[in-house]
Amino acid sequence: YECSLSPPMLARAIAELNEPDNNLDRLKAIDRLKEKYGPLLKEDDAFILRFLRARKFDQRKALKLLQKYHTIRTELPEVFNRVKEPERLAAIMNSGTLYFSNGRTKTGSWVLMFKPGPMNDIISAYDVVAYSVLCIEKLLENEEYQICGSITIDDLKDFNLTSLSPSSKLKKMFDLWQDSMPIRIMPIHILNESKVFSALFKLIQPFMKKKIKQKLRLHGNCFAELHDSVEKHLLPSCLGGT
């Protein structure tokens, strides 16, 4: 493995993620984690490095994340069978429900847009999670994404409980994002939330870790604070974008 980060991005990784400042120490950290785990879905150094960065090079925490990354695949076959057969996700791919904006914020983060309102009974919660896994796995191939992560924007206009099919594995799906993917979670902006969301939030709140709760930003239909974090050219017109 040879680091492909630019000097400014590497400096950020060193400051924010405890990244070693030389490749030899980086490779030693990768080898130590490999030795602790055993057989892996992928063996290459770049793959292992994602988990170290996601846990700020804490070997114990990175090992736990690596273990959960593998075990969640057997615990959520409803999601990962779809990941293996992406043709099953054609409906959500073409719906405009979930997509990344074309560009990055001034802090380097990607912007993930989620708009469940237009969904229909053809698209399930498993489809949403499987498609998001496909997108994130592809982005994780980019080292800068591992450093900068993505801001999430959930536009809940027209959202109702029938928009998202109920799932008996709601907690497992939360565990997937909180504990099982080597990602850096940035602020999560919730817009146009309604009483329906309030009821749903009470249901899912017990599953959410404190760190995730601290990332939440509830805006209602006031977009001014969102515009302070995300440039308007990255947003759709319905959210005050240009």
Score class of each variant (00 low, 15 high):
residue 86 P to M: 04
residue 174 F to G: 04
residue 76 L to G: 07
residue 53 R to C: 14
residue 240 G to Q: 03
residue 142 N to F: 06
residue 28 K to A: 15
residue 82 R to H: 11
residue 56 K to Q: 05
residue 25 D to F: 09
residue 129 V to S: 03
residue 235 L to C: 10
residue 151 I to N: 05
residue 15 A to L: 02
residue 89 L to Q: 07
residue 87 E to Y: 00
residue 142 N to K: 06
residue 16 E to D: 14
residue 149 G to D: 09
residue 180 S to P: 14
residue 148 C to S: 03
residue 188 I to Q: 09
residue 162 T to R: 15
residue 133 V to L: 03
residue 167 S to H: 00
residue 1 Y to Q: 08
residue 138 K to Q: 09
residue 59 Q to Y: 10
residue 160 N to M: 13
residue 93 M to E: 15
residue 145 Y to P: 05
residue 136 I to S: 11
residue 87 E to S: 12
residue 164 L to F: 04
residue 179 D to C: 09
residue 123 I to S: 05
residue 130 A to R: 02
residue 79 V to K: 13
residue 217 R to W: 11
residue 83 V to A: 14
residue 85 E to I: 06
residue 93 M to K: 15
residue 103 G to Y: 01
residue 93 M to Y: 11
residue 120 N to I: 01
residue 81 N to S: 06
residue 9 M to H: 14
residue 135 C to I: 01
residue 132 S to Y: 04
residue 8 P to W: 06
residue 191 L to N: 04
residue 159 F to W: 05
residue 55 R to L: 08
residue 110 W to I: 01
residue 5 L to V: 00
residue 226 L to K: 11
residue 141 E to M: 05
residue 99 Y to K: 05
residue 29 A to T: 11
residue 1 Y to T: 02
residue 54 A to R: 11
residue 90 A to K: 05
residue 84 K to H: 14
residue 101 S to R: 06
residue 103 G to L: 00
residue 200 L to V: 15
residue 205 Q to Y: 14
residue 61 K to D: 08
residue 88 R to C: 07
residue 175 D to E: 10
residue 210 K to G: 12
residue 103 G to W: 01
residue 187 P to Q: 12
residue 71 T to Y: 12
residue 202 K to D: 12
residue 187 P to Y: 14
residue 34 K to I: 02
residue 61 K to P: 07
residue 38 G to N: 15
residue 4 S to V: 03
residue 233 H to M: 13
residue 218 L to T: 03
residue 195 K to G: 11
residue 8 P to S: 06
residue 18 N to G: 11
residue 164 L to Y: 04
residue 130 A to E: 10
residue 25 D to K: 15
